[in-house]
Design a protein around this nucleic acid. Structure first.
Lengths: 339, 339
DNA sequence: TTATTTTATGCAAACGATTGTTTGTTTCAA
DNA sequence: TTGAAACAAACAATCGTTTGCATAAAATAA
């Protein structure tokens, strides 16, 4: 059996509390140098490792944070997660990763698990069917930070990106190239980011006096298939769009590319494409993609810092929403429309 | 404050142990239907959530497993992680994700953290500088499973892939196309997978009576830059290779592609390329990549099941190494050499 | 020398569950 | 009516720490 505090204490011939005090350091309680050294030595010799569980129970502090995202396979969330884990490591926090698959039920289950496990805080990209369970978190005074997605009139710490503006920039670019039939390939509806991107799209059309064609707005989810199906539908319309803004991320966009190529169309000759996409891969695609790029590590960083501040300060600071800029990177997938 | 067992007990007018027994179910101890119902009702009304920490301490079982990988950003490990998390969820296990960045120090620190936190088991893709700390795990009787990388004469549960053979298949394909100057773009040296892939490479050359050119073996790590630098070096040799086998994964391979294109060479006209690469992106690259594809969810699945078996059975089963096949997928990045 | 402060450590009660053992009731057969 | 068996629930110890408080010993002041 692994040695406990008690074992160490017995070994040195001292009380467990003394060992504990030596190990925890700080404290104004003074320990004589002699016992201090003996204890340190004993800890080494017995190879004592403190039991975090017991400590967490006693101190009501677990040095654990929960990260709840739709899918860690999505490079967008993977990078955020990576950065959070990295910062957590520095501060001796451990990260529990939970994937909701955009399933509200699962989100609630996970959240309860995390609460039950006594995490010190939660970083969450919520499925957005409801926010009732989040109100619960507030009542339970569990620190949490939203990333990527927020709710109207729900004022909590959050890190988001300027979705609408980034799409406006994209559409502007297309319009300047001469496009007027611009389609919007959505990810899943009802997600904050998507709603805002769509709003940006509509705003931009309005700004340029282009009529809004509802048939040009397609897409029902964040998977490869969703992108594929939706784009196929788009390409079977009587009047083809000359450009697509893909707002659903990597998988959706790859699905879209597959559909476009299958239809025998080429990018950007027949169709211009702008996407929210991983900037690592985008330069290397068949046609290097013009993208709206997120600074995902920065998002993770900001989120972690906000959370840590909540955890460490007991007073209730007023909630803060941080908006991280995006970068518009022009590559080869956008060009003048052919006719 | 969140209600505890005691609160529920007091609310019903019963002893905490009774509540516990009702909640845990099973047990041969009988509880009258009446109290049972009252307790269930009280639990609902008070919205009681059991404290996992306390339970873990008492039962010495945390329903937590640690996953230690070099980098979750690497799609290879991301998929494995995803599958493990998924299966864990079904069995009510929670996953703590740790990234080592191929740093032995960090691996040891993490492992100690996990032990300290009382995880029920660990799935580990080890940095391979040493295995001493793993022997520790065995002594402490902490269930663990290696993935992707194993040690010679270290017989523990593990899930690996047939690295050597998959490279032999790749080289064979190249030789049949007429290549004889085939280079090997390594990832980091001294990693089990890489060593085996290299062994496969050498074996294949031997099989085909091709001479081994040490200058054709390059690469010092798993990052984009490593792939880029190494390939550049390769392309500055007096006698250019006509084909490259990239064994370092996505990042290394993208780096290689960048180098090749920068040198004004084209794939596969000037250089054929076969890579270990994410099959999601590979069809969409500038030249769709001929790849050696791993079934990563299967790896994750096997690893989780091995671990679960270890956790659930107290007797020491004899260790098992499972080898998961790879798939060789021919796309457009391989062709006959130009001259 | 005695009183007082300081210093170093021990004591014991938490934290919130689980579980072997006891105790107090019923129930039922003899 | 008594005694044993069966049933329900309480009791109390325990998991490994931390921490407020008490206390003994040593150091200092009076």
């Amino acid at each position: 059996m692994a040695p406990t505090l008690k074992d160490v204490a017995a070994y040195v011939g001292v009380h467990p509390s003394t060992v504990s005090r030596v190990l925890r350091g700080k404290e104004n309680l003074k320990i004589s140098a002699k016992t201090h050294d003996k204890i340190i030595k004993a800890v080494k010799e017995l190879n004592y490792i403190p039991d975090f569980t017991a400590r967490a129970l006693r101190m009501k502090k677990s040095f654990t944070i929960g990260l709840v995202v739709p899918d860690i396979l999505n490079p967008y969330f993977a990078r955020i997660a990576r950065r959070i884990e990295q910062l957590g490591f520095e501060k001796r926090y451990t990260v529990i990763v939970c994937n909701t698959d955009e399933d509200q039920e699962k989100e609630i289950l996970y959240l309860n698990q995390l609460i039950s496990r006594g995490v010190d805080g939660i970083i969450l990209a919520p499925v957005q069917d409801s926010k009732d369970h989040l109100i619960d978190l507030i009542e339970k005074k569990i620190p949490f930070v939203l990333v990527d997605r927020i709710f109207e009139d729900f004022n909590v710490d959050a890190v988001i990106t300027n979705n609408a503006e980034s799409v406006i920039k994209a559409v502007t670019h297309l319009v300047k190239l001469g496009h007027s039939r611009i389609a919007f390939l959505r990810g899943q509806k009802n997600i904050y980011t998507i709603k805002n991107r769509l709003a940006g799209y509509k705003q931009a059309l309005k700004d340029f006096d282009l009529k809004l064609n509802e048939n040009y707005i397609v897409g029902e989810g964040f998977e490869f298939e969703h992108g594929y199906e939706a784009t196929l539908k788009l390409l079977e319309l009587p009047e083809l769009p000359t450009a697509i803004v893909s707002s659903g991320g990597d998988l959706v966009t790859l699905g879209a590319i597959k559909a476009i190529l299958e239809k025998g169309l080429s990018i950007p000759k027949d169709i211009s494409l702008i996407a929210f996409f991983d900037s690592l891969y985008s330069p290397f695609l068949s046609t290097p993609l013009t993208t709206i790029t997120h600074f995902r590590q920065k998002i993770g960083e900001k989120a972690f810092k906000l959370l840590l501040k909540q955890i460490e300060s007991n007073k209730q600071n007023s909630p803060k929403t941080i908006c991280v800029d995006t970068k518009f990177e022009i590559r080869k997938s956008t060009a003048k429309p052919s006719k």
